[in-house]
Nucleic acid binder design. Structure first.
Lengths: 198, 198
DNA sequence: GTCTATATTCAGATAGAC
DNA sequence: GTCTATCTGAATATAGAC
């Protein structure tokens, strides 16, 4: 379906733009140039910028949820799961050139439609739940050290990861992301302590 | 000086606007309405939005540095200092209605002039230095538990604090800030362990 | 589905009167 | 220092031809 390709290309361009320049920082003209069509043509796919932002956030939520499921399918210890999620946030930071969509949209909160504001809450709840599960696992299997309270750990970890992206973004320098998360990473056992020879 | 009052009122309005709506989210029209003058009059004080943003960041840096000095003058243990800085970030979060200027500007990086981008780096370096000193103190006086590396602690703490503001901003709910920083606060001794009866 | 053309609103900014 | 008036460009969005 040729029309679907344009729609996907527009979502890709919009996501990239929103995460680099913020919701108020990009326009249909930017997307038009990026995708290679006229800006009026974008309205055929997304009648308004508000509806585009809803579609963006929905796709982001679904993609991220799929990533979390993928991690669960491929990694068993809490430490491995947490490490993979850190890798996801590192990749989304893209050497300080971007933020994740959730962080970017949270900063632009006042410019967003109520629907998107609600979507942000749903997204955050989903990530927090998943992280809490990972810390619970890491607490019981011993793969994450010093876990007192998995729910508090997950709230702190999500803030740390988004804050680390912000730090890297501030100077467009991936080393700042690494510095910020290093102590968290040090709490993760390299190998599963239940199977030390692995 | 009557002219200086207007200039200060404009900076106050601009800082509030930038921290709630982002650098691209407010206009001279917003400031004009807030302060009660016509938008063309703003150009007399700040010829361009770029120069306004430089003045904003400079004032923010000076104010925050003064706050840090004030903390140093009034609190002696590392734990007390860290606790006071957390209080500053909580206050600047303002129940999830705002971010600190550094976090807000970092997210809008691509829209800022090179001068401001550089100012952000200077501001972050100042805060990181101060925090590193607080963690060193907390490590040696025993008022912050589990300090392995003060430099890594300070990078993690700044990201956590800015991320906690982002979390509260996402849902305009101060409880999310509290949740995110709770584990860090639990590492701070309530009283100076060197003087337990204090 | 994409185009040209256009409408409307608002942005940052300037000129010159008071 | 602040005002009115105005400029220029860019934003979102619509109408209608192809």
């Amino acid at each position: 379906m040729p029309s679907n390709d344009t729609k996907t290309a527009l979502l890709d361009a919009a996501e990239k733009a929103a995460r680099t320049m913020g919701f108020d920082g990009f326009s249909y003209a930017d997307l038009a140039e990026d995708v290679g069509i006229r800006k009026s043509s974008i309205h055929h796919h997304f009648p308004s910028k508000a509806k585009l932002s809803v579609a963006l956030m929905q796709r982001y939520h679904e993609n991220f949820q799929a990533v979390c499921s993928e991690i669960d399918a491929n990694f068993s210890t809490g430490g491995e799961k947490l490490n993979e999620l850190i890798n996801q946030y590192r990749a989304r930071s893209d050497d300080g050139k971007r933020l994740c969509l959730c962080a970017s949209f949270s900063a632009s909160r006042d410019s967003l439609s109520p629907d998107v504001v609600h979507q942000i809450s749903l997204f955050r709840a989903m990530v927090i739940d998943w992280l809490t599960g990972a810390f619970e696992k890491g607490q019981s299997d011993g793969s994450i050290s010093g876990v007192l309270d998995p729910a508090l750990e997950s709230a702190a970890a999500l803030s740390l990861l988004e804050g680390a992206q912000l730090a890297a973004r501030a100077e467009e320098n991936s080393a700042l992301f690494e510095n910020a998360i290093k102590l968290l990473k040090l709490r993760i056992s390299v190998s599963n302590p239940l199977y030390p020879g692995r």
